[in-house]
């Protein structure tokens, strides 16, 4: 029994190693920011990344996400730590889309519930 507990302890450490991946999407970096003043704007999901990871739009812009991966991703408002249920789109597979219109200025975070390291932001001006 003692050994089992010890084993569980070690495995928790391994779990930490495995799960310690912090959000790695460089949403603040300049090379992955797109400004789009037009009423429609788009984000592409490819190889488990939101592209661009940070999209800047004007208030009233309808943003459309298109999944280019052959797997289910979600567009879930908030962060894995605190989803805020503002929007929640399910993009079942390649070619599927989800749209949401941002009417208020602010910075909106979103992520994929199936792959928590997939994170993006929409900055509404």
């Amino acid at each position: 029994m003692k050994r089992i507990m010890a084993t569980l302890g070690f495995l928790a450490v391994l779990g930490l190693v495995g799960l310690s991946d912090k959000p790695v999407v460089g949403i603040a970096s300049g090379d992955n920011v797109e400004s789009n003043p037009t009423p429609g704007a788009s984000v592409t999901i490819q190889t488990f990344q939101f592209r661009p990871a940070l999209l800047e739009v004007k208030a009233g812009t309808r943003v459309t996400w298109t999944n280019q991966d052959d797997i289910l991703h979600t567009i879930t408002s908030g962060t894995p730590e605190s989803p805020d249920s503002r929007f929640n789109g399910r993009l079942q597979g390649k070619g599927s889309t989800f749209s949401f219109t941002f009417t208020q200025a602010g910075t909106y975070s979103y992520f994929c519930t199936r792959h928590n390291s997939m994170r993006g932001q929409i900055r509404v001006n």
Binding site: D21, V24, G26, F48, Q49, H115, M118
Partner: peptide, 9 residues
């Protein structure tokens, strides 16, 4: 970016 997406997966 692919590297960053691959590691957590």
């Amino acid at each position: 970016e692919a590297e960053k997406a691959f590691l957590p997966l």
